[in-house]
Design a protein around this nucleic acid. Sequence first.
RNA 1: GGGGGCAUAGCUCAGUUGGUCAGAGCGCUUGCUUGACAUGCAAGAGGUCGAUGGUUCGAGCCCAUUUGUUCCCACCA
Length: 871
Amino acid sequence: MEKTYNPKEFEDRLYKEWEEGDCFKAVRDDSKVPFTVMMPPPNITGQLHMGHAMDETLQDTIVRFKRMQGYCALWLPGTDHASIATEVKVVEQVKKEGLSKESLGREGFLQRVWQWTDKYNARIVQQLKKLGSSCDWSRLTFTMDEKCSKAVREVFVNLYNKKLIYKGSRIINWCPCCKTGISDVEVEYAEENGSFWHINYPVEGEDICLEVATTRPETMFGDTAVAVNPKDKRYKHLIGKNVILPVVGKAIPIVGDEHADMEKGTGCVKITPAHDPNDFEVGLRHNLPVVRVMNDDGTMNELAGKYAGLDRYECRKKLVEELKASGALVKVEPHTHNVGHCYRCNTTIEPIVSKQWFVKMEKLARPAIDAVTDKKVTFVPERFAKIYYNWMENVKDWCISRQLWWGHRIPVWYCEDCGKEICVKDDPKTCPDCGSKRLNQEEDVLDTWFSSALWPFSTLGFPDDTSDLEYFYPGDVLVTGYDIIFFWVARMIFSGLEHMRKVPFRDVLIHGLVRDEKGRKMSKSLGNGVDPLEVIDKYGADSLRFSLLQGVAPGNDTRYSDAKVEACRNFMNKIWNASRFVIMSAEGAKVKPLEEVKLSHADKWIISRLQSAIRDVTLTLNKFEFGVACQIMYDFMWSDFCDWYIELVKPALKSDDEAKRDGALSVLVFVLENALKLLHPFIPFITDEIYRNLPNTEGTIMTKEFPRYNAKRAYKKDAASFEGIKEIITAVRAAKTELDCPPSRKVSLYIVTESKRLISANQDSILKLAGAKEIHFISSPEEAGDKTVTKVLSVGTIFIPMGELVDLEKEKARLEGELEKVNGEIQRADGKLNNSGFISKAPKKLVDDERAKLNKYVEMREKIINQLKNL
RNA sequence: GGGGGCAUAGCUCAGUUGGUCAGAGCGCUUGCUUGACAUGCAAGAGGUCGAUGGUUCGAGCCCAUUUGUUCCCACCA
């Protein structure tokens, strides 16, 4: 093995071996319990970013853990066609060649998108592999694959037949740039400085005007009423009369509607049903005509009269001028308001009435809410369930049609002859009513999330009753960020319930965002994104993975920093070197099973620590507490194993006693091998590379059994008593530092203790690690001489003669400090024990422990006081 | 307007049924070429856990109020 950890040397090689060895493949095995994770399919438009890196690392860790535990673990990968995002990109691309969607035609354009897909699909898969993702690539699914299309049609037709899908005129968010409707969740709001134009609408036949205010004056061409509140005394009497629309000169009615807020502005509202969601509702209540005055590209249509063909903002400018000139414009106020923007191109959204397809949500939402209340689906952390409820309980019908070309085309045909609407799974040849062959398919495609919603079962062969679907559905855990709970998680839950009659997964593990070093969201516009591949190139995939898990609380955002990855890389280096030491020491030695080894206190101690680590890592991983699990392994490897155990066994390794040497080595190898297995789900590459170099191993670590807690090997008592040895060593080291004594100077130790046997047995370790030359057991402090440094410990009291090296004043000060500390402890314990509430109500064990502590401290105090006297 | 999150050592953050929980990493101080590792070793300094009140024998941990900060949803004629 090389001297320093060099991940580049083995990461790609190992991944290839895993893949070629079919280690990721999940094949139905009825002797095993399935464990299913569906990868949230990354968009083919994107590169792998830190958010993916975190998402995939979490999933991979869970899956590797479960796989090693003996589950038939399936991690199914895939990619998403991302209809609008991809279409925008490809339009941009062909634009550079002077082409457009229209010039290419539907077929031609889609061909280009497929080319694009093939290229970038491969790229993202490659990137996922670099991370070490152990997914079953033989099942890689693209949301536009044949099997997904089949599922989409099945579901669409079923919902259509159940009347849960309908076509209707509604106000939708229209993006004039993408020329498609987008769903509410795809709209991003931002504060903008605009104006409030106050316009006078003269009342017909009266000498008064109603003043209305608007932020979008150009929509006045579509006004079909002015509303006032029916309770408003100022205007009540005018209800039923008409106002004259300025510029247009058309008479429109004054209606009474609650929507008009008496407190707000003048209390009069212009009603434009075709261009405002609230106005649309008002229009329905009063049976007002819906007059659309804008084209799909954001220009005004012929109803805008002389402004027809002008862009909406150009029209606004000119119209305002005209209103001003005619005196209709009362005033203009500056006004900041939230304006919706397209999440893809950031163009200002125009609410426009339009014919769209919708999924009726009411009936679907109820069971989906119940599934979470009934704990059939559990959000981790729990608080995200609230966000889910909040949305589900107020969910509106889902607009699923998009005026795009890239996506699943809506399976509805219209008969050119009799006008029949046909919705069927297989392309119809003739009209079932009139037999006509002149059928035209609906132009619109479906919202991307329509196919994503089916992901948990479309990937397994739905609607066919496949063996996989039966075995692997429902999934066990879905891992994703909190930003797509609405878009995706909610829709998968109700889709699973509706079409599979079962929830799609039991747990939803929600993680936070990976932010930049300053805590800002990583974004293209800020240019602060960190490329995971560059990080992997620099530090290795394991370091990146570990840094994304360690110290992160479930559901919380985390900051990326090079410093953190570097710290993790150092940990990898530590593991690497410790292993190198073990492997080098093992050369030529016999590694025996633990049963054949006589175990020392230190051996039992480290094995005991290992058992704790096994127990706690298993426990925390089952609860998805990755941050805690990482910390346990970090401390175990670095502190317990490297800093203590390896140092402790070095003498034995150099010993001439073969049995002793082989024994120590057997324990070293045993502990390391188990630790590597515990670490493998987090850091798969380095653990496997080392594992393959360990004696008596064969093949890859990833298919080995995850360690199980062994109570017999917990050695609780031995482990606890060995802590006393560590205490002595630490105390001597500290004494030297406190007195500026070089650590290399060997000192004599005098010990008053009742644990003589324990200390004798570990004499070599103490001498070596504490830097001592001899240990004398004495029965009274005087035997140590009069000038000593004293350490009062739970295993006994140690005295170190310091001769002239000792600064008496310094030692006195130290002891006084110590005395103060002990006094504090006594006071605390005393207080507790004098509290009758504590004595009577706290568990007996705690009270006893406290009493024991008090006794110990009182004893210590006496000893320290004695020592001070001696000085 | 509705709902969250966060506030713990100089910095970034852990702390999940209230009882060795006051922690880690980085940074800082002091000392170490201790034959796995200076991407290292040893010993340290550093925090009244945002504020106030409450529940409890006992509270970063539970409740109420409050301050600051941040996010999501809704609305904004």
